[in-house]
Design a protein around this nucleic acid. Structure first.
Lengths: 122, 122
DNA sequence: CTTGCACCTGACGCTAACGTCAGGTTTTAG
DNA sequence: CTAAAACCTGACGTTAGCGTCAGGTGCAAG
């Protein structure tokens, strides 16, 4: 597969894939006439990269994490980093849940206008 | 209170507060000799703004949402927007949960090296 | 052969949420 | 009164994850 096909299947832009390569998150299997060629597994890998980005991880963090996800081998020095990242994600989840609850209150109030509503002080 | 005190109590920079004002998220109660003065409630408001930013909302979205949180009154046209935003947040939560679970697998594997481990294909 | 599409490598543009510096004013402490 | 803080208004810098354009190449079809 060439880059366009992989990009389409994974739902990203060609530009994004070249960017991932620059960031050392992804390598083409080979180059034929200057053009990148990929195995089928690349599609899944690109999707995984997207998920990690969506989770708020930076390129450099993803660069560290990906090999572990691939091989299952985790150098112990990375364990702390991963645990820290997990904690960070946990915090973001908690914040998101709080904001969602907030939004739900507002939405509920909008649907069911309550004249005696006692609004919270933030 | 002047800007520095509010910023310190809310845990943000002075620059950030001036930025919030530019974005119409926050107004000073008055100006004395060109300097901004705030009521105590400003601290909570700034924290709320931070939470919304942390939830991934943009300045313009926050600008729409904040008055509703304040007053509890929601113009019906905003309801769709809020619901959409809620859906979006839901998606991000789901993604974060997935990534966290992924991280947990890797961490568990690292702590408990399993020679017969069958790694998932992403 | 040539048309046309997909691909290539730079390289500059963009947005958001501030950081930071310059140059000047106001408030506060001694 | 005076010097140090704290504040003010621009305005330019920064970072990340791409978008997009320019100018040139490779591959399949007619």
């Amino acid at each position: 597969m060439r880059i366009g096909e992989v990009a389409a299947k994974a739902g990203v832009s060609v530009r994004a894939m070249r960017y991932y390569e620059q960031q050392n998150l992804l390598q083409a299997d080979c180059r034929l006439g200057g053009q990148r060629h990929y195995a089928d597994t690349a599609v899944g890998r690109v999707r995984m990269i997207q998920h990690l980005y969506a989770a708020g991880l930076s390129s450099s963090t993803i660069r560290e994490v990906l090999p572990c996800v691939d091989t299952g081998e985790v150098p112990p020095e990375l364990l702390d980093r991963l645990t820290a990242e997990r904690t960070h994600i946990d915090q973001r989840i908690t914040e998101l849940l709080a904001v969602r609850a907030r939004l739900d209150e507002v939405i509920a109030a909008a649907r069911n206008p309550d004249p005696e509503c006692h609004h919270m002080q933030y």
